[in-house]
Design a protein around this nucleic acid. Structure first.
Lengths: 269, 269
DNA sequence: TACGATTTGTCCGTATGTATA
DNA sequence: ATATACATACGGACAAATCGT
């Protein structure tokens, strides 16, 4: 038969809806906290069945864009940007053997190095206050609190770089690495704690880029070699526990919001 | 009131099914290429309605675990996990974070530097062949093809680092940057093309880490300063067009598969 | 405390589209 | 070309959760 018409393979309905809503979230039509229209509203707007709408919403939920609550005054609510999806996907990759702990720590080392350098270069007095606030004075702390302190410090340090891309990337790695540490629960000090962190803070405060970089490299190398010990024998059997662990990074993000400067408020390159 | 009982919030049915299938995929019960039971089979196995099963499968598809084909002998097939979804998610996050061009190029510069260093250190002869294959000899090319060549080169270079996390991060940055370039459509040469790339390739081939780093820094600085010109006046109004642009990165990823060595097959730190 | 209203969660039945043997 | 097996889509119904009164 002669070809008179070109193929018009329709993308699936749910996919069109998924993309449309996703893009409007990214563009800011719906902001975090906003409620999406109810299922029945979307049904009338898109002129499809409820089933299709539900598949689209479910996909948006899986992709980490919305949260869905049942009941009156419930519905789909747009979420804050969260790294949990990324760190979750990374942990899946880890469990699947697609990435290794060495690779994780390697990337973290290079990111932290650059972050430390930029922090020393750009940290404002306000940044320094926030950073010093993460250094708790009390000497005795339980394991979970120490993890939380560590996560907080490195998160806030990344904020001092004044580049949100570093923060997003760092948070994903940070969350996963600290979940691993919780699983490993090393007897020895894998968390150098406030001593090293305080030294890094001081270097940042003095705007001593070289010293900050030097310190963070040592810090990262130590953590990496500690974790490496456990790589083979212990962790693989406990990978399935990864999902259950919590680092408290979420709560930290809520207190230290992503309050980045306006886009062009600082010098680059 | 005293807390006598712990919360017994029932997970939704679709979620239980999602997790159960996901876990069995990760644990290897279903391997890449395997077909999952059909919808109706799953309905009888899980004793739930068809709709619930569909939502679970849709979520698994969104999360990148399976591919669903229509028709006889169709159904849900387990995918080989790759990093496309992860870099796509990162790309979305970055767009949500309202980042600037300067911030993009800044992070890219530091990542590319590390990538180039590692590539020079670790590239195998097979890597080198693939890398040289990206350097097209023909002198005349249209704009889109030049973009494509550039993206391909940097993507394959990141593969040479033998650390997929770098590739994930690089891909998401490359995606955004090249979308910007397409919007900007600079008259002047923003893409240095094969001259610079060939020099970098040579440095990698000679395992000259220092030279490779030196070259890539210059390369990045040049690209960054070219792009920066457009930051103020042009791009802001066109940022919303980002999602419409296509870099062809997807097709490139398909041809240059993520064939990383087994996880512990290389030296680190 | 109890009840009603709203919204999502689940189920059933049916019909249509699509790809393969 | 047809039959088969599967996903896609629709409509209606009721259950469950969660709010405000």
């Amino acid at each position: 038969m002669e070809k008179k018409f070109s193929s018009i393979k329709q993308p699936k309905s749910y996919e069109l809806i998924f993309n449309q809503i996703k893009e409007s979230i990214i563009k800011g039509v719906f902001k975090p906290g906003d409620k999406l229209p109810s299922e029945s509203d979307l049904v009338t707007q898109f002129q499809v069945s409820r089933h299709v709408v539900r598949e689209a919403l479910r996909s948006l939920q899986t992709a980490g864009f919305i949260e869905i609550k049942q009941g009156a005054y419930g519905g789909a609510v747009v979420l804050e940007m969260n790294f949990e999806l990324l760190s979750g996907a990374l942990s899946d990759m880890l469990r699947l053997g697609k990435i290794s702990i060495s690779q994780l720590t390697e990337v973290r080392k290079s990111l932290e190095t650059e972050v430390a350098r930029l922090a020393a270069k750009r940290a404002t007095t306000d940044d320094l206050n926030k950073l010093s606030a993460t250094l708790i004075e009390e000497p005795i702390m339980n394991f979970k609190d120490r993890i939380k302190e560590s996560v907080t410090f490195h998160h806030v340090l990344s904020l001092c770089s004044h580049n949100p891309i570093y923060t997003i990337m760092m948070d994903s790695l940070l969350d996963l690495i600290h979940k691993l540490i919780i699983i490993v629960k090393p007897e020895k000090e894998i968390l150098p704690g406030k001593v090293t962190h305080k030294m890094i803070y001081e270097a940042v405060r003095m705007k001593d880029e070289k010293k900050a970089v030097e310190l963070i490299i040592e810090h990262m190398s130590k953590t990496a070699s500690e974790l490496k010990k456990y790589e083979e024998k212990y962790i693989k059997e406990n990978f399935n526990k990864l999902d259950e662990q919590k680092t408290g990074l979420n709560e930290i993000l809520k207190s230290f919001r992503y309050n980045f400067d306006h886009v062009n408020n600082y010098k680059t390159i």
